[in-house]
Design a protein around this nucleic acid. Sequence first.
DNA 1: CATGAATGAGATTTCATTCAT
DNA 2: TATGAATGAAATCTCATTCAT
Lengths: 191, 191, 191, 191
Amino acid sequence: MSPRTKKQYKEIRKEKRAIIMEAAVEVFAEKTFMGASVSMITKKAGVSKGLLYNYFESKEDLLRQIIFEGFEEFAHVFDPNKDGSLTENEFKYFIDETFRLLQKDTYFWKLYFSIVMQPDVMLLVQDKIMEMIGPFLQTLTEYYEKKGVENPMAYARLMGSIMDGVSMNYLVDPEGFPVEDIKKILIDKFK
Amino acid sequence: MSPRTKKQYKEIRKEKRAIIMEAAVEVFAEKTFMGASVSMITKKAGVSKGLLYNYFESKEDLLRQIIFEGFEEFAHVFDPNKDGSLTENEFKYFIDETFRLLQKDTYFWKLYFSIVMQPDVMLLVQDKIMEMIGPFLQTLTEYYEKKGVENPMAYARLMGSIMDGVSMNYLVDPEGFPVEDIKKILIDKFK
Amino acid sequence: MSPRTKKQYKEIRKEKRAIIMEAAVEVFAEKTFMGASVSMITKKAGVSKGLLYNYFESKEDLLRQIIFEGFEEFAHVFDPNKDGSLTENEFKYFIDETFRLLQKDTYFWKLYFSIVMQPDVMLLVQDKIMEMIGPFLQTLTEYYEKKGVENPMAYARLMGSIMDGVSMNYLVDPEGFPVEDIKKILIDKFK
Amino acid sequence: MSPRTKKQYKEIRKEKRAIIMEAAVEVFAEKTFMGASVSMITKKAGVSKGLLYNYFESKEDLLRQIIFEGFEEFAHVFDPNKDGSLTENEFKYFIDETFRLLQKDTYFWKLYFSIVMQPDVMLLVQDKIMEMIGPFLQTLTEYYEKKGVENPMAYARLMGSIMDGVSMNYLVDPEGFPVEDIKKILIDKFK
DNA sequence: CATGAATGAGATTTCATTCAT
DNA sequence: TATGAATGAAATCTCATTCAT
């Protein structure tokens, strides 16, 4: 298939489905999945309630599709070569990119982290998330293996946890969070 | 027959209150604050719905009291000397104690982390949480100041974020999380 | 039976039953029968909820007893001779006494007028109230008969209605109500 | 199929709103505001409980709207010239119209008088009611001023009170109330 | 494709009343 | 006689979802 032109993309985004999803990410992020009502979303999207159910089977389905599409983009950031291996430069790039995405897709990541600790909701998207995180940890583990650390798996798990914690704290208080300093420390200690 | 003494009533209230709160922590942790219904809680506690309101003004009040009392204990763990200053040994102790508490009060900490990313809910307990985290970061900052690092505040913020991320990942998958290895790495790199 | 001494009366009033009834009149007057909760009443009375049910079968019974005893006193005011006939002087006295009672037993009369338009609640006390109002209208009718007006029954009904309306308006805004002027007009026009 | 037009929706809303309000006036009048439940109202209106909240923000809002719209009509009856001044003929017309409205909108006026002595409920509609009664008393005062009575304000207050009392007694027992005779006496004594 | 009125289950909360002590 | 913890029915209100148009 030939790649879509920019104009086509813009049209797709402007589609009702995209409009609803964009509104939903915001409302979900601000109110959480359970706290957000379908009415809030359709009101923000400027469409009728009925229309939402033309595009999505349910509120849960809407969440699922948001998470699925959101993670697609993230997949391209980490290990862009797709060769499953990581250079030291790519490691730095990964940290930079993480913060860039947090900034760009703030609502999405707020939503993501609001879901992580909610077993019932997490269940809806767990498969997709595991699908992302598995290779991510795998690649990190290999990275630390190559560096010759004693327990590369623990390093990888720790690094993943750190990025979670750092992301959350950044999202909660972006102004007060010393991003650049922390990036430097992380690269210094974990590259 | 003469009524129960004041002391007897007090005892009854203390015990029932504890029973309800214990049930509530579990249900909140599993379903989140918004997803948990008062019915679920009272059913698990084995009391009538009405009784909950004899002990707590509202569902929100119940949450607040759980968070307040849960944090009181945590306050004693970090910087046990209460002198606002931290030795290297105390730093290690703090990391050990963190995991001990995560294990002991799993439900409470699951609840806590499920709240952090929910602005509306966070609002209910923000004051108490800030009251805890402020001094915590302050002490950590001074710790890194004394160690002579370049930007102690960033170190402290990072360390706080790391403990958040590590705790969350541990809570989601306690079996698979390499606690001991990670403790070692953390102490090695951040003590 | 010999009349009770003052001390005995005081003791009776101080009895729990009286204490509860006094608290109840206030709360009923301020919150209406349906809006007042048993808890409010017992709290104001400084007794336990259980005790109320020692003295009164139900909230409804409590209201009934309040209304019954309240009207006993009123019975003595109107037509104090009990001869069923009214002089012009007694008519004036009746109007004076009405306002005196409104002032003395404000809560009771507020309660009374809050009940009048509530069929369900009125049902509880209707018998007693009819028992009072019947003779009252009868006496008034005879009064106007003797004065030779064309339709004495209508005069009596009107006079009763007027006293209702005047009482209500006085109770709602005692400060702003021109009591003395209105008394004068009433006596002038209807004596 | 294409959705209904805006106009069609507006029509539906207008009609359903009226149906609910009519049911509500009846139930409020019979049970009082506090004694009436939303269930009773929606059952009588033949709609679901949820629908009421599509049209009114709350039970209180429903009451407010009923009172507001009910008083609008009354405003046209009294002083129909809107010139703030009253002729003797208009005075008679006003008394006639009062009874006509009591007959036509019995439920509404029962509701109104059931509210007057309930401070908590009165609060909800006080503004609107004051807005009506203020000018009413003002006009009456001027009327009696022009007639040269000694204390026109007292006359006005009395006349207002009388209409309250008469209306209440008529509403409680319309059959037994000698309307025509009483009208005559009132006009005779207070025109 | 699009609307929004309508439903009904379920949420939080209140409260008259009971009862063990 | 007196207490207040406890109950359960019912109240107000919310909201995901359906459906006639």
